[in-house]
Amino acid sequence: MTPLLDPRIVLVNKKVNEIANIIAVMSSKGGVGKTVLSTTISLLLADKGFRVGLLDLDITNPSAHIVLGVDPEKIKPIEEKGVIPPEVHGVRFMTIAFYCGENPLPLRGHNIDNVIKEVLAITNWGKLDFLVIDSPPGLSDEVLDILEYISKLKTIIITTPSPLSISATRKLIELIKEANIEILGIIENMAEKPSDTVTSLCSRHAIRYLGNVPYFHELDSLLGNVDRLVKSRFAKHVGQIIQAIIGVIHR
């Protein structure tokens, strides 16, 4: 007899089989803008009329709800044959913050793995055009789980022009390619113009350069105010990148 595996893993891909595109937004360096970019990408895709979900898989430091202005004590998923994520500004949104609130959630690796399996197994997304996954920095449990458990995953990598971020990006590219997972492209964040280092990294690895987003000093003041965020100069830049992403997907 085959050994007993975790039954939740079997369910994970069934739960996402009505989702056309699952895109994990990744970078192995922290502070490069993954959460703000993945949340803004989700909001702008929803504005375009797509059915969109956003999953915050930064388990020990969830923060997408802050960008969305969601108080996790007040809004909760609905329980129905699992849980149905609440819709926030047109985006179906799921985060561990619904369950841990603003309390610290210190977890060792095997516990993170358990949380991810549980959340992926119980969340009923329904039909979606896009599910955007905000992933945490690093190359540990969350990232390995995302790459392992979701079979039709695509990825977008975020980097800044900093040599520290580029070094981490190189390692992430290697890991994703080894897992045979598609990289839709790289977004260069906090860059006035495309930098030679990132564009040459892209050409060296045959990865699309999706575009650059300048650093906006006022961005922090827009977090939590979705109406202002989606009309910001930042969002305008992200909008151009979304056109590039849609172009790649529909090519």
Binding site: L5, I122, N124
Partner: peptide, 21 residues
């Protein structure tokens, strides 16, 4: 009915188990 999702995981697993074995 969060229990439904848990039951679904168990039954999906059993479904694979009986086929494989």
């Amino acid at each position: 009915m969060h229990e439904w999702a848990i039951a679904e995981a168990l039954v999906e697993y059993l479904n694979n188990y009986i086929k494989v074995n």
